[in-house]
């Protein structure tokens, strides 16, 4: 039994070690996620298909993201039928909830949305810092949300970034991918939060139909 535990631990260590202990020392690569933004030049509004799943609940909807001239950000998600799921604003350093359905209006979910939307928009708190890992082609990002320290490990190339987010105090982990075009435009994002049983996937839509219809 004892040896079994030791072997299990060894397998676990070996399995995870590549994250922290790269076998080959490669040239240090500084990767600043601020260069990557879901808002491309001259675009102030982005629409995405959004799919969320947590535990046994699912939401499919449309996510509207807007950036004002003052660099304030607005995030509104509605269902296909137009019902609002949430509305968040990110002004300066303040992320606030304007509306959120009760089942999602939990501190841990709100914090998760804040983190991911900050990542998408490249807007981080003042505590944010980004530095390359000394021995790997990995960028490590730390920033704080309240008393919790988040640490992101990014493994990017031209079109794809893998990230793992460790919420150190709670020892939870989020894994995800961000897909970029060659123009550094976000083409999609997927992540799952095992601890909270949550998965989220979004994809910007190209052919949005927006016009001025007559009103009732």
């Amino acid at each position: 039994m004892k040896s079994f535990r030791l072997i299990s631990l060894l397998i676990l260590f070996v399995g995870c070690s590549h994250i922290f202990l790269p076998k080959e020392k490669v040239e240090t690569f500084f990767y600043n996620t601020k260069d990557f933004n879901i808002f491309i030049k001259d675009t102030s509004t982005v629409m995405c298909k959004l799919e969320m799943k947590f535990f046994f609940k699912r939401f499919n909807g449309i996510l509207f993201m807007k950036r004002s001239a003052q660099k304030d950000y607005y995030f509104v998600c509605t269902t296909q039928f137009g019902l609002k799921i949430f509305e968040f604003t990110l002004k300066q350093d303040n992320f606030s909830v304007q509306y959120c359905i009760p089942s999602l209006n939990k501190p841990q979910y709100i914090a998760m949305f804040e983190n991911q939307f900050r990542l998408l928009c490249g807007v981080f708190k003042k505590e944010y810092s980004c530095y390359p890992a000394p021995e790997a082609n990995i960028c490590v990002e730390d920033y704080r949300n309240g008393d919790t320290l988040f640490r992101y490990f990014w493994v990017p190339n031209d079109t794809l970034a893998h990230f793992m987010q460790f919420k150190i105090k709670e020892r939870t982990r989020i894994e995800g991918k961000v897909l970029y075009s060659k123009e550094k435009k976000v083409e999609g994002m997927y992540y799952k939060h095992k601890g909270k049983g949550l998965k989220l996937w979004l994809k910007p839509m190209e052919n949005t139909i927006i016009n001025e219809n007559d009103s009732l």
Binding site: T45, F64, K66, I209
Partner: peptide
């Protein structure tokens, strides 16, 4: 769909 944050309406 009219959203106050959007300048235009979104049509489905």
């Amino acid at each position: 769909k009219y959203l106050s944050i959007m300048t235009d309406k979104v049509i489905s």
